[in-house]
C-alpha cells in the first residue's frame, strides 16, 4: 500500500518538474521584449478604447506614443491635456496644450421646420437611408433623424430630441472622439473648439442648394445671402456654394452675425440670454415654437425671390400635378358612366 503512495508522489513530482522545465524553456526562448513604458503609458490613458485618437484602442495609442519621436501628432481627446501631460512625463517628452473640442450638430432643420416629402421605411439607420436617397424631406443635406450618431457615441453624450428629431450633444460628456462625425453619412457633425466659457457660434446648416431651393425645403436653411459675411469684422465668415461657414479660429464670438441672420441658421451656444426684442430671436433660433411664429413674418420678407430659372420647372410640376388630377377625375367619371 505504501508503495503505491510513494510511486504516486514520485511520478507526480516528476511530471511537475518536467512541466516546469518546459514552461521555463518556452518562456525564455519565446520571450517578446516589450517596452515597459507601454504599460505605464497605457495605465495613464482613460482606457475607453474609443478610437478617437485614430488608433485602434488605447494599447495601440500607447505603443504609438512610446515609438514616436515627439508627441505633436498624438493626442488623446478623451483624457485631454492632463492625460497627455502625464504621458509626456512618463516618456520624458514635451507636449503642447491643445484646445478642447466638442461635437456640434450643424443642422437645425427640425421636424417643425422641414416639410416631409416622403415616408422612409427602410432599416432604421441613417447610412442605409442616405445610400437610398436624399432623405424624407426636401433638404438632401440635412439630418435624417435616425440617430446613427447617437448609436455611435460610446460616452452617452448624445440623444435624439423627441420634439425636434435632431440629435443633441451633451457638452459635459462629449470627449470629441470623432465617432459621431464619422458615423454621420451627411457630415452634419463637426468637432468645434470649446471656446471661451464654452461659447460657440456656428452656422447650423450645410445645405449647398441655391437660396430659394434651400429655403423651400427648410425654414431655417442658410441661403447664402452673405449678410453675415458683410457684418463680420474679423473675416471669420466665408460663403461658398450658397452656404456660410464661420471659421472658429477667427471668430471672436461677438454675436453680430446671429443678429443679422434672417433665417436663424446661425446658432449661439452658452451665451447669457439677451434682453428685450433680441430675446425673441434667440429663442427662435433655439426652436421654441411660440416665439418663433412672431419672427416668421420677417423671415418671408428676407427671403429672396427664387431665381428666375427655377420658375419654369416648379410651375411645370404644378401644372402637371393638376393635369394628373384632372385625368384621374375624367377616368373616374368615365367609370361611373
Amino acid at each position: 500500500m505504501s508503495e503505491v503512495v510513494i510511486y504516486t508522489i514520485i511520478s507526480l513530482t516528476g511530471l511537475g518538474l518536467i512541466a516546469a522545465a518546459i514552461l521555463y524553456f518556452v518562456a525564455t526562448k519565446f520571450k517578446v521584449f516589450e517596452d515597459p513604458r507601454i504599460d505605464q503609458v497605457e495605465e495613464a490613458l482613460p482606457l475607453t478604447n474609443c478610437g478617437g485618437c485614430g488608433h485602434p484602442g488605447c494599447r495601440a495609442f500607447a505603443e504609438a506614443c512610446v515609438k514616436a519621436d515627439d508627441l505633436s501628432d498624438l493626442h488623446c481627446p478623451v483624457g485631454g491635456n492632463d492625460t497627455m501631460q502625464k504621458v509626456a512625463s512618463i516618456l520624458g517628452m514635451e507636449v503642447e496644450e491643445r484646445d478642447k473640442y466638442v461635437a456640434v450638430v450643424r443642422c437645425a432643420g427640425s421636424l417643425e421646420y422641414r416639410q416631409k416629402t416622403s415616408i422612409y421605411e427602410g432599416a432604421p439607420s441613417c447610412a442605409v437611408a442616405a445610400s437610398l436617397y436624399g432623405g424624407d424631406t426636401g433638404c438632401s443635406y440635412g439630418c435624417l433623424y435616425l440617430g446613427d450618431c447617437v448609436k455611435s457615441c460610446d460616452f452617452e453624450a448624445m440623444y435624439l430630441d423627441p420634439v425636434t428629431g435632431l440629435p443633441v450633444v451633451i457638452e459635459d460628456k462629449c470627449v470629441a472622439c470623432n465617432a459621431c462625425v464619422t458615423s454621420c453619412p451627411k457630415d452634419i457633425m463637426e468637432l468645434w473648439p470649446q471656446g471661451r466659457k464654452n461659447r460657440k457660434i456656428f452656422v447650423a446648416c450645410i445645405n449647398e442648394d441655391k437660396g430659394g431651393t434651400a429655403k423651400k425645403a427648410c425654414e431655417v436653411a442658410c441661403t447664402g445671402c452673405s449678410k453675415c459675411e458683410k457684418e463680420c469684422k474679423y473675416d471669420a465668415i466665408t460663403i461658398e456654394n450658397y452656404l456660410a461657414y464661420i471659421d472658429p479660429e477667427k471668430c471672436k464670438l461677438c454675436r453680430k452675425c446671429v443678429d443679422v441672420c434672417g433665417s436663424h441658421s446661425i446658432h449661439e451656444i452658452n451665451f447669457p440670454p439677451r434682453k428685450l426684442k433680441e430675446d425673441a430671436e434667440e429663442a427662435g433660433a433655439r426652436g421654441k415654437r411660440e416665439k418663433r411664429s412672431a419672427a416668421a413674418s420677417t423671415d418671408t420678407a428676407v427671403l429672396e425671390a427664387p431665381p428666375a430659372e427655377n420658375v419654369d420647372v416648379v410651375e411645370m410640376a404644378k401644372a402637371r400635378r393638376l393635369k394628373s388630377r384632372e385625368a384621374k377625375e375624367n377616368n373616374e367619371n368615365n367609370e361611373s358612366e
Binding site: 415616408i119 422612409y120 424624407d136
Partner: peptide, 9 residues
C-alpha cells in the same frame, strides 16, 4: 399632394 410616397430600399 395629399399623400406622401413611401420610400424604402
Amino acid at each position: 399632394s395629399s399623400q406622401l410616397l413611401t420610400v424604402s430600399p
